[in-house]
Computed example of a mutant assay.
Amino acid sequence: MSAPARRPDAAQNRTRIVEAARAALAESNQVHLNEIAKRAGVGQGTLYRNFPNREALLAEVYRRDVEELVTAASALLAEHEPAEALRHWLDRVIDYAEIKRGVLAALEPSAWQDLVAYSHNPIEGALGHLLDAGKAAGSIRADVDAYGVLLLIAYLGRLDGDEWESTARPLMNVILDGLSRQDADR
């Protein structure tokens, strides 16, 4: 049985709360619910009706980011050549990973392990879709798969927060260069 539909204003409140939490996570791992309620322009009662605790709110931020990342793969392929779509998608992965770091740092280990398990298959599927399109177009190496690329990307999580901004995107460019199909005469 599905959940009852939310009133439009209630759905907007929920969205504003999640967006405020995401913005707060981009600034700091220290996320306080009263600050998020103020940022979202809602009372604490509204926040707690939507999210009974901090973990529920952070989990929703994480889930929405995963959904947006997965949905973006097809949308980017509709707008760009496969290699360029992959580049744009991996750029979004960097943004997603930065928020993911904040969410995981703010949650108890058991809660974040469930979230990571939730996100793995959809993200691997979206990346596989992008890689398959690139292989079919001849721009992506035939000997790579989504699982292997995710292993490479996962190492970005080892970066310290202070080196993230200067290091994550250049390393992602190295990964992209490695995925590109090389001419036979090189």
Rank of each mutant, 00 (worst) to 15 (best):
M1L: 12
A5T: 14
D9G: 08
Q12E: 15
R14K: 13
A21C: 11
A23W: 01
E27D: 15
S28L: 12
V31I: 09
H32Q: 14
L33R: 10
A40C: 10
G41P: 11
L47N: 12
Y48D: 02
R49P: 02
P52I: 09
A56P: 00
L58C: 07
A59T: 11
R63A: 10
L69Q: 09
V70G: 02
V70P: 01
A73V: 05
L77C: 02
E79Y: 02
A83P: 03
E84C: 01
A85S: 07
H88Y: 11
W89L: 05
L90G: 09
D91M: 06
D91P: 04
V93F: 14
Y96M: 04
Y96N: 05
A97I: 01
K100C: 01
V103L: 06
A105R: 11
A105E: 13
L107N: 06
L107S: 09
D114T: 14
L115M: 07
H120A: 15
I123H: 00
G125C: 00
A126F: 07
L127Q: 07
D132W: 05
K135D: 01
A137G: 09
R141D: 01
R141N: 03
V144N: 03
I153A: 13
Y155W: 13
G157I: 08
R158E: 13
L159A: 08
G161K: 14
N173P: 03
I175P: 09
R181F: 07
D183C: 01
A184S: 13
A184K: 07
A184W: 10
D185C: 04
D185F: 10
R186C: 09
